[in-house]
Amino acid sequence: MSKPIVATTSLAGCFGCHMSFLDIDERIIDLFDLVDFNKSPIDDIKTFTKKCDIGIIEGGVANSENYHILKEFRKNCKILISLGECAIMGGLPAMRNNKDSIESCLKEAYIDSPATVNEDKIIPNDEELPMLLDKVYPCHEIVKIDYFLPGCAPRADLIWDALVALLNGKEIDPKYKTYKFD
């Protein structure tokens, strides 16, 4: 029997959710035996060689690239999970929503910041850089999300229990002590 396949990605997140995933510690070595990690969670269809069973998304959607990757994940994963506050509601990056325009954020960072010497008033705009969105969006506003695992970062035990349940074909049944906020 082939192993279940798990894919993960970080959109506009800080990688803290991924780090918390690693905080399952010794259990990670068991996990390597239980599942295959999808090898190419890239925004190129050809590299998503197989359909995945579980896709885990960290971070919200702040630029065009995040958007496309999220779409690809939905297309290729049977179950999609929003992991952590940023994926669920934008998190810290969404502090700019409804308060600061993206122009004012760029101006502050590249023109007004006290250490920056930028006489030509260059704001990064190369074609290699993805387009920034007006707001930071939670993932479920872009695609359907099947499960939400709260926390910033969600506790390692919550992530582990959820994966074990899903891999056994059961529903996630989070315990209070694994998802309470701090």
């Binding site: 506009a12 702040a62 630029n63 690239e65 810290l92 990056p93 502090m95 700019r96 308060k99 600061d100 993206i102 004012s104 954020c105 760029l106 101006k107 502050e108 960072a109 910041s113 990064p124 190369d126 290699e128 850089l129 993805p130 920034l132």
Partner: peptide, 14 residues
């Protein structure tokens, strides 16, 4: 290329 931008310097104000 670093392709990520968050705007922290601005939205932390206040």
């Amino acid at each position: 290329h670093i392709v990520e931008f968050r705007g922290f310097e601005k939205f932390i104000q206040g």
